[in-house]
Computed example of a mutant assay.
Amino acid sequence: MFEYIKGDLVELNPTSVVVDNNGIGYFLNISLNAYSKLSGRKNVMLFLHQVVREDAHLLFGFVDAAERQIFRYLISVSGVGVNTARVMLSSLSPSEIQTAILSNNVKTLQSVKGIGAKSAQRIIIELKDKLSKDSDIMEFSIPQDNTTKDEALSALVMLGFSKNPVSKIVDKLYMANPSSSVEDLIKMALKQL
């Protein structure tokens, strides 16, 4: 299995790219999120997921490992194929998908074309535990240089709460409300503690 590809971006379309690596052009399927992040770039490094079928060998490209991991989780759900997972990643960011699953938000998942109520519920049921245990995705999906989140966490620790459980709550609240102020994050966290 391939891990990633580095090379020159030869062609960029909303659903695919061609990456030239040592004179060989690789056709990769991508999401709209990846497309927007790749616009204007000449050299790229994309994480890969390979799908081998009787009639085709397909490569899917991802800007970061977190997006690829969410894609892999989604295709592990019964009834969710690679095209549905790619549509989901085109409609919602990886952190929005993760937040929707962890907060049982069926409506957000249903907003994606082709995902009905039963599919959304199945995705939540099958992935909630996996996502809550996967610390790698949590680290990628939460911006690392966020002073608002850090200040809220520091304030709650100073109030006497243990850092580890408070950190998880603040992370989840920040993912759900990225534009919140420090005061708002503290108030929301206090309601859950």
Rank of each mutant, 00 (worst) to 15 (best):
M1L: 03
F2Y: 13
G7R: 06
L9Y: 06
L9D: 04
V10N: 08
E11N: 12
N13F: 11
V18Q: 09
V19P: 01
D20R: 12
N21D: 06
N22K: 09
L28T: 02
L32R: 11
Y35T: 06
S39I: 06
G40L: 11
M45F: 12
L46F: 09
L46W: 07
F47G: 04
Q50V: 12
V51A: 11
V52Q: 13
R53L: 10
R53P: 04
E54I: 02
D55V: 06
G61Q: 02
F62Q: 04
V63S: 13
D64T: 14
A65K: 15
A65E: 15
Q69S: 15
I70G: 15
Y73M: 12
S76W: 06
V82K: 10
V82Q: 10
N83V: 07
A85W: 15
A85C: 15
L89C: 10
S95A: 12
E96R: 14
E96V: 09
T99L: 05
A100C: 09
S103H: 14
N104W: 04
T108L: 14
V112Y: 14
V112E: 09
I115E: 07
G116K: 13
A120P: 02
R122K: 14
I125E: 04
I125R: 13
K128C: 00
K128N: 01
S132V: 03
K133Y: 02
K133I: 01
D134C: 06
M138L: 15
I142Y: 00
T148V: 12
T148S: 08
K149H: 05
L159H: 03
G160T: 01
G160M: 01
F161D: 00
S162R: 15
I169K: 15
I169S: 15
V170T: 03
V170I: 07
A176I: 00
P178I: 03
S179R: 14
S180T: 08
V182W: 09
L185Y: 05
I186G: 03
L190W: 09
